[in-house]
Structures are given as structure tokens and as C-alpha cells.
């Protein structure tokens, strides 16, 4: 089996959004009929501090091209201090991923409040454009998801 290079390739971007700020902001973007790329999928979590760094690794492993973690601005956390932990956890994870060869644009974190619908739209559009420019992620991806590996197999294999 071979997978053809797709010119209409759309990245697969995962966004963890906290229920109280960013998810509300994303809903507000909808309410205001703002437009942004389709390639972002939101996973709702109660607080950005619920997001385990292992979820991010898992997303890359399963073939996500980009991961976004969004929460309330520091000081505004619905649970008062959750996002301060988020901040430490993901500053370290971002560096560790970069160190392991993942472009830091592929993993980003942003504070987006419930009223910042435009910021949500802009962030999504920006991240989407950045990742489109980077192309598909083939790092950390399981071999059966890895297009390049498959292509190589196809070249050398029968059909």
C-alpha cells in the first residue's frame, strides 16, 4: 500500500481547552460567527492543569501534527492556582520536546480568557498556518502512521 503525497494536506491539530476560559472563548467565537480553519479539534478539560504532559506525547505518537494547551490567564484560574502548575509543567515539556527534535511551534500553550474570542480565532489560525508550513509531523509517530516510512516501504516493496 502506498500513500500518495496529498497537496490538500490538512494538519491535525489538537487543542486542550479549559472549560471556564478558553472553551467559553471558543464558544463565543462561534456565537460571533468568527471563522477559523477546520483542522483544530478541541478537547474540553475542566482546567488546563488536568492536562497531563503524557496526553501531548500520546497525541504526537498517534499522528497529531500540532498540540495546543489553552487555559485561563494566570491569576484568573477558576480553580485559583491550577494554571500556575500548567505553566511550569508545559514550559518544561516544550523545552524537552524541542530538545528531542520537535519544533516548538508544534506544541504551544496560550492563555485565552472567556471573553477573548478573537484571540482564540487568531491563535488557532496562526498555529494552523505555522503547522501547515512545517508539514506533517513524522517525529514520535508510530511506524504505522509514519508516511515517510510507508513511502520508503512502497518504493522498495512490490506494491
Amino acid at each position: 500500500m502506498s500513500i500518495k503525497k496529498d497537496n490538500n494536506w490538512e494538519p491535525r491539530i489538537l487543542a486542550f481547552c479549559c472549560n471556564w476560559c478558553t472553551y467559553t472563548g471558543a464558544d463565543l467565537a462561534g456565537l460571533n460567527r468568527m471563522k477559523y480553519p477546520e483542522n483544530v479539534r478541541v478537547i474540553r478539560v475542566p482546567c488546563s492543569s488536568k492536562v497531563n504532559p503524557q496526553f501531548v506525547l500520546r497525541a504526537f505518537q498517534k499522528g497529531a501534527d500540532g498540540v495546543l494547551v489553552c487555559g485561563c490567564h494566570p491569576g484568573d484560574c477558576h480553580y485559583s492556582t491550577g494554571n500556575y502548575f500548567t505553566r511550569r509543567r508545559f514550559m518544561l515539556l516544550q523545552r524537552l520536546l524541542e530538545y528531542n527534535g520537535i519544533d516548538p511551534k508544534r506544541f504551544q500553550a496560550k492563555w485565552i480568557s472567556g471573553s477573548e474570542a478573537a484571540k482564540f480565532r487568531d491563535t488557532v489560525a496562526e498555529v494552523s498556518a505555522q503547522i501547515k508550513a512545517l508539514g506533517p509531523n513524522n517525529k514520535f509517530v508510530g511506524a504505522h502512521y509514519d508516511n515517510t516510512v510507508m513511502e520508503k516501504e512502497a518504493e522498495g516493496g512490490k506494491d
Binding site: P74, G75, T81, Y84, F85, R87, R88, R89, F90, M91, L92, Q94, Q108, A109, K110, W111
Partner: peptide, 28 residues
């Protein structure tokens, strides 16, 4: 990011991910 850090110097210390400071650098 958070200042000089070594582990296991005493049994009392806190770990970097077990605490936070509101003044931590913010890149997000």
C-alpha cells in the same frame, strides 16, 4: 527558569513541579 536547582540535598525540599510562584516567567 526557576533558579538554582539540585535534588536530594535534604528530605525537606520541594520539587519544581510541586510548587509555583506567581512571578514565574510566562511564555504563554
Amino acid at each position: 527558569l526557576f533558579g538554582p536547582y539540585e535534588c536530594g540535598l535534604s528530605e525537606e525540599e520541594t520539587t519544581a513541579l510541586g510548587e509555583f510562584k506567581t512571578a514565574d516567567p510566562d511564555e504563554f
